[in-house]
Each structure stands twice: as structure tokens, then as C-alpha cells.
Simulated scan of single mutants.
Amino acid sequence: MNADPRQDWREWREAREAAVSAPYGPLSLAGHHWLSDRPEGRIPAVPGEWRADGDEVVLTAAGGDGLAVDGKPFTGTVRLAADQGPAGESRVAAGERRFVLLRREGEWAVRDFDPGAGTRRAFRGVEVTPYDERWVVPGVFRPYGETRDVRVGNADGRERDLGLAGELVFALDGDERTLQVAVGEGGSLWAVFADATSGDDSHRFRFLKPPAPAADGTVTVDFNRALLPPCAFADHFLCPFPPPGNTLDVAVPAGERRLVRN
């Protein structure tokens, strides 16, 4: 990490912009298709026949479908598991398009990533508040002991479980605040939150991803790194809404706020 926090933030912003606008970044998600809605196995505008079969999806393709699996032209039938890596590394492709298999609460879906998607072509950037050190505050992570599943709404209109591992406690404007958080890869934290700017000067909710806490639970909370959720970039994502208690009653005009408007 750079000794200058402003420079470190600028480098982080450059990497974030590159990831967002990448050929298979969130702007390229052109479709999300639940297989339960397509029992016949045919998805409009997606080649091949896709059928859920327990813990796998069976893909059947003819020569005219133009599909490739593992980088080679494919015809016949193959059984596929959920994709674990980035969209650009998915096993199934058609030209530049990548088809990613996703499973949520037992349901299978096919996601269609297209570098030529209209959302990617129309992208003009993200409105971001310049770095301000007052939005960097000390915090403490207080684990629950075991994960608590909370039912929350998602951007696609459905409710799903959100696993929460504890509370992140910090102070803003002299008052103690808390956010319920999940624990991600490497012990990093993840919060879905809203604040007094949400839906007005910023997107209706945002993500915050503090690093893994120290052994005593202390962690730096940096709202300069508040992120727009994937569903701010393309309508087809399933982003969870903030769980109860994760709407701050103060304005946090820091970090990413919304997409640049033409």
C-alpha cells in the first residue's frame, strides 16, 4: 500500500474503473435467465438447449448454434457445474459472448455477458466524490459467533437469504453507528448499506468492503471506497438490498455515488 493514502486511493480508483469497463465487467451483462422459467430448455437469443439436472446443467448444442466449450467448437451434450471464476473464463462461449452458469438457493440461471452490450457502449463513467480523510474512521468488528441468515429483497424483486457474520461499529458525526456485515474471502468484510443520500445524490444503496479486521477486531472503515452495486451498471444482477438496520440516518456523500448521466 502506498504511504500516501490519497495516492493509494487514486490507484485503487484506476483499477476499479478498469474492472467496471472491462469487456466482461458488470456493464457487459446482457441477460439473466432462470432455467425454471424455461422448462423446454430454450432461452430466447441464447443458443443451445439448457436444462437443469440436480447439481448440474445439461447443455445440448447443434452445429448451427455456434457454441464453444473450453475454447473448442462444440456439438452434442455436456454436463456443466456452476462457474466459479470471472465471466471471461466461463467454459461456454459464442463468439465474444460468454455464458455463465449461476446457482442461487437451488435454482439455476444462465447469464449472458456480451462486450458489445448497450450498457457498456453507453457508459460514460461513475460520479465519485474526491478523497476526503474525514470519511476514514476507526471501527471494530463484533462477530455474532455464527452466521445469521436474514431474508432481504433483491434487485430482481425476489427475497433471498443474506448471511451476516457480525456488526461493524464506528462513529460518524460523533455518534456510534453500526452496520451488519458478511465476511468474505480472506476475512474481508462486506456491508450493503444506504444513507441519507441514497436515491437522491447517490444510488439507492451501496456496498462497503473493509479489509479483514486485526486480531482484536479493529478495522479501518473508509467510505471513500463505497461502491456502486453491480445492479447499478446492468439491470440483470440480483444485488441484495440493505438488511434491517443498515440504513444510516446521516448523509455519506463519499465514494461512488451513481453513473454519470448524459
Rank of each mutant, 00 (worst) to 15 (best):
V100L: 07
L189D: 01
L228G: 00
V100I: 05
R258D: 12
L35F: 14
E14V: 13
R258Q: 14
F207A: 04
F141D: 02
L102R: 14
S28P: 06
G255I: 06
E159W: 08
D70Q: 13
E133H: 10
R79V: 04
R225S: 08
L101K: 04
F99P: 01
L168H: 03
A109S: 13
F205G: 08
D249A: 04
G63C: 08
P210M: 09
F207K: 07
A234T: 06
F223H: 12
L102Q: 05
G31E: 03
V46L: 08
P130A: 01
P243K: 00
D149K: 15
P26V: 00
T178Y: 02
P240Y: 03
G95E: 07
E89V: 12
A234Q: 06
R42C: 06
G199H: 11
P210Y: 03
L179N: 01
G174A: 09
G184L: 13
P26G: 04
P130L: 03
R258E: 13
L101P: 02
V252N: 01
S28I: 02
S21L: 15
R206N: 10
F193L: 03
A234D: 05
D235R: 15
T220L: 15
Q7T: 13
P5M: 14
D175Q: 15
A22N: 14
H203V: 08
D156R: 13
A82K: 05
D173L: 01
E133I: 11
T247L: 11
G85I: 07
A30N: 07
V20A: 11
V46Q: 02
P5V: 14
H236R: 14
R103I: 07
G199V: 10
I43H: 00
E14I: 11
L172E: 10
R204V: 04
R177N: 11
A94G: 06
R6F: 14
R158K: 13
L238A: 12
W12G: 05
A94W: 04
G85T: 12
R6N: 09
S188Q: 14
A22S: 15
T218D: 07
Y131F: 15
A109V: 05
V150C: 03
A62N: 13
A19V: 05
A18Q: 04
A254W: 00
A212G: 12
P47D: 07
G186L: 09
G125Y: 00
W108S: 00
A234I: 01
G25F: 00
E17W: 08
L67H: 00
P47C: 07
R258W: 11
V46K: 03
F99C: 05
L164H: 02
P115L: 03
V58D: 00
A191T: 07
A62V: 13
H32L: 10
N246C: 06
L29R: 09
P115V: 05
A226L: 08
G88H: 04
W108R: 01
G186N: 14
K209Y: 06
V136R: 03
F205E: 11
T75R: 06
A165V: 06
R258V: 12
T197K: 11
Q84A: 15
D114W: 00
R134C: 09
T77Y: 04
R97M: 01
R98M: 01
R124K: 10
E40Q: 13
A171I: 09
L164S: 09
G145A: 08
A155Q: 09
V183F: 10
G174H: 01
V183D: 06
G95P: 06
R257K: 12
V150I: 03
